[in-house]
Design a protein around this nucleic acid. Structure first.
Lengths: 134, 134
DNA sequence: CGGAATCCAAAGCGATACTG
DNA sequence: CAGTATCGCTTTGGATTCCG
């Protein structure tokens, strides 16, 4: 990955950041998490996913699905019936990822208020340059 | 938030996903995590960050810094000395976030190999449509 | 029903020159 | 040293259409 890491003190930070980045990259994108969670209830079909993740477009759903599938987080099963039927379900490591994400949920929940407060404070302090206050 | 959630079974997933999305949004972007980790070692200056996060540009460093600061994850201290000196350090909730992220690191580390394998398998299976195989 | 392809707008990001 | 402003390329993502 990063070509030159000869700077010693950056090493472990770099390593740590690298690992994290991989996870975040795979989970970032507005939709990955929504899809992941929607699939965590058990088998779910394409159209169900479309409804379960409110604002998503066909394109993004398919793209997200493909990514998740490629990383081995989601399994795709095609039923060769007359009206095609495709079901998705989390793999074992997909389930584990969802569980690991609860640490984040937890954090978010604990500090939800603090963050919003910080934002308001920040926006207030720098309001002089903020034309959106209207 | 999401206009129509009358579907019952989606309710908690939606809620959960929402919370998670907030976290991910704030941490997504190629650089947020790198900066966060770099700051987790203690006070760190602008130029030090620039070096600690290898590929980052001035623009992105500043942008990322501002975002993190706005969310109350990072604190900025200006020393009004002759050559300006600005130091950044994680706030308490910033530290907590970094700690929460270790659950993800852990997951990534455990399944690093499995994911790469899944990718190769996927790319291999769908290689017929892949012009990059050289 | 499930999904690929195309088109287009917006956001992300890098490089760099400039300022206090 | 720390940060801002501008420009242009690249990526993301939404809407729509067509296919098996």
């Amino acid at each position: 990955m990063t070509a030159d890491s000869s700077r010693a003190r950056v090493q472990r930070s770099d390593d740590h950041a690298c690992r994290l980045s991989e996870v975040v990259e795979r989970v970032s994108g507005k939709w990955s998490i929504g899809v992941l969670l929607a699939a965590s209830h058990g088998r779910i079909r394409y159209t169900e996913l479309e409804r379960a993740v409110p604002g998503i477009s066909r394109r993004m759903l398919t793209l997200t699905l493909r990514n998740l599938e490629r990383d081995g987080l989601l399994a795709r099963t095609v039923h060769p019936t007359v009206p095609p039927k495709v079901e998705y379900r989390l793999t074992d490591i997909g389930v584990e990822l969802c569980e690991a994400l609860t640490a984040l949920t937890d954090w978010a929940q604990r500090h939800e208020g603090a963050i919003e407060a910080a934002r308001r404070a920040y926006d207030g302090t720098n309001a002089t340059a903020e034309p959106k206050a209207g």
